[in-house]
């Protein structure tokens, strides 16, 4: 081969091989799955095959914090719930409580109890979704399971159709309770400043009391599944307790005066990684925000 052509060929080959190895040392996960939201992960390995750099990219933005400005405060429970359709109740309840603060009103006791009932029911069905559909599949179908198995259908295959049907039925009934009180379960409508839009008819109470008992059984049952399938499997335990997955962190939650958890409201309690808790402080924080600074009117006049 002519020498000049050989040189070009060698250069091109070197560049192509380099590019090939750079690609080989790049792992892309797109999209991330089994959670609410969009994400992309790029991991770059060095020549020794160790992680040199990792990027977590969020390829979405809708701008709720902007397009909510200037809107009636009482619309916020239903608008902010659209931030997330898996946990709309959380946004709805937070916005409703903000309305209580705004108008300086305390909901009457039945309204508070209804809100607590809706919220606790939501916590149960949402956590059930996480265990059986979102994160749980990684922990139930086996630590070396193929990607095709890591989903709710794989979970049902592993635990059996009867258990699968029990999970589905319980979650359905819990969500029907939320829909009873909130109109819809995805994007409920009950929140009003100082109260809720709908009460519980006394004749409907017994079925919900029965559901609460069965839901408690179901929660204990799920703990047992975790025990039997995950904690009894030493491969899983080794994985979970390894450096890769263990995250020593603080915990923060809401508690009542006896330090019992209350998801709807309470005092803030923070617990350190060693298990030490700092004194609980009141929930209320005051933001002083001048309404004129962040209104659409002010914004449009400042855009050139």
């Amino acid at each position: 081969m002519d020498e000049s052509i050989q040189t070009v060929w060698n250069e091109a080959q070197t560049r192509a091989n380099e590019a090939y190895y750079v690609q080989r040392r790049r792992i892309t996960v797109d999209p991330i799955t089994r959670l609410e939201g969009h994400g992309k992960i790029d991991i770059f390995l060095n020549e020794q095959g160790e992680v040199e750099r990792a990027y977590f990219q969020v390829p979405e933005l809708r701008g709720f914090e902007v397009f909510s400005l200037g809107r009636p405060a009482e619309d916020m429970p239903q608008i902010t719930s659209r931030i997330c359709g898996v946990c709309p109740t959380a946004h709805h309840m937070a916005a409703t409580k903000a309305l209580d603060d705004l108008y300086r009103v305390e909901p009457p006791s039945p309204a508070r109890k209804i809100r607590e009932l809706v919220y606790n029911t939501f916590m149960l069905e949402d956590h059930a979704l996480h265990v059986y559909v979102l994160g749980g599949p990684d922990f139930i179908v086996g630590p070396d399971a193929l990607p095709e198995m890591r989903n709710v259908l794989g979970v049902i295959q592993t635990v059996g159709v009867d258990i699968g049907k029990r999970v589905i039925a319980t979650r359905r009934r819990l969500r029907e309770l939320i829909a009873y009180l909130g109109g819809k379960v995805v994007h409920p409508v009950l929140g009003l400043p100082g109260g809720v839009a709908k009460g519980i008819a006394p004749e409907d109470l017994p079925q919900f009391q029965q559901l609460a008992k069965e839901a408690l059984d179901f929660a204990l049952f799920t703990l047992q599944v975790f025990h039997d399938v995950v904690l009894k499997n030493s491969a899983y335990v080794d994985l979970i307790t390894s450096d890769t997955y263990t995250h020593r962190t603080y915990y923060m939650g809401l508690v009542d005066e006896k330090n019992r958890v209350n998801f709807y409201d309470g005092k803030v309690r923070v617990v350190s990684p060693e298990g030490k808790s700092t004194p609980s402080s009141p929930r209320r924080h005051t933001w002083t925000i001048s309404p004129s600074t962040w209104s659409p009117g002010a914004m449009s006049s400042s855009v050139t």
Binding site: C84, G85, K165, A169, R172, V186
Partner: peptide, 21 residues
């Protein structure tokens, strides 16, 4: 698939409940 979405439509599919099988 979901674009600028909240995931609520995904939930409505899971809400097929027993029918999902």
């Amino acid at each position: 698939y979901w674009c600028a979405s909240c995931g609520g439509c995904e939930e409505s599919i899971v809400d097929l409940a027993e029918d999902i099988l």
